[in-house]
Design a binder for these strands. Sequence first.
DNA 1: CGGCTCATGTAATTCGTTACATGATTCT
DNA 2: AGAATCATGTAACGAATTACATGAGCCG
Lengths: 176, 176
Amino acid sequence: MELSATAKVILGMLAMRPRSGYEIKAFADHSTRFFWTASYGQIYPELRRLSDAGLIEGKQTPQGGRKRTMYRLTGEGRRELRRWLDVEPEVFELRDEALLKLFFAGAKPDAARKAIDARRAHHEEMLRRLAEVEPLAEAAPDRFPYMVLRCGVDYSESIIRWCDEALAELDREDAA
Amino acid sequence: MELSATAKVILGMLAMRPRSGYEIKAFADHSTRFFWTASYGQIYPELRRLSDAGLIEGKQTPQGGRKRTMYRLTGEGRRELRRWLDVEPEVFELRDEALLKLFFAGAKPDAARKAIDARRAHHEEMLRRLAEVEPLAEAAPDRFPYMVLRCGVDYSESIIRWCDEALAELDREDAA
DNA sequence: CGGCTCATGTAATTCGTTACATGATTCT
DNA sequence: AGAATCATGTAACGAATTACATGAGCCG
């Protein structure tokens, strides 16, 4: 069985604990979203498909008059998740508009600085968000999410360093 | 005018020099593809659209009996490119399946090492490809593509370092 | 002659976001 | 009362890949 991108997040998150679609989205927004996004438009239809395929099952758990469906992994769902985890990862994609603009900055050299500044600012913002969730991730018994978080910190910090060096280089070139 | 992702690469590349659709694709595969991809299925229809919009123009330049259309920027196309370059970049996307697997590795801890290994191998491969094109980029009069290339080298090297540290950490935990 | 590169395109399908629609509950 | 949050879903659109189709020229 071929898992869609969204199916992978859903199975992984339900392996940690049962969740509603809303909770899956909320958790993704604070964790995987730095390297793997998911939107409602994908999550809800996918929950339906995974349920039909028998990998997860939903249970009505209304809170007061507010209806809610909590999903949990089935045995087959857990097996499927493990099978996927065991396969060599293949998706490594980056899309960075600042680098694209810098690449083409020959057509408008004064745009180079702006592109680098924006890239720097983006990763500063990322560091801020990561710092927010760090205490929670550190306290959790599962060490893997915390490892990934530190990878994100490392990643953004190294990009910020590169941005600073690049800006300094532009300064030197302008001076010359 | 709102430029599509592919329109941005096309305009940028044609600003450097006139090219055929085939050449745009070939050049993208050796340069921008690390942070911005483009496929035939997008390039050819987009060349048509940009041509209809008056931002580029094509000219038949057959090589022997092999037909070919070379495109170049129009004045309006160059203006549009500059306008885009001048706007704050907004797209910063990463999709990394190895990090996703590591994040969920609690469900199958022995998969963690494999995910990190694959991530490391991917970036080793990237370094190899970057090293291949480096001499060309360094020799070019336009400094910006070379800056971006060195950014890619920096990026992959920093990821490889993180992978090594992460693997060492897993070793320590296993020993304990 | 066979395989590779040059060259252009389309069709089918999938992927994914965004916006919209709805409505209850909880907090201030 | 009004805003924010919890909660579920669909529709329209756009983005992008993949596979397919076609054919000429070039190198060994």
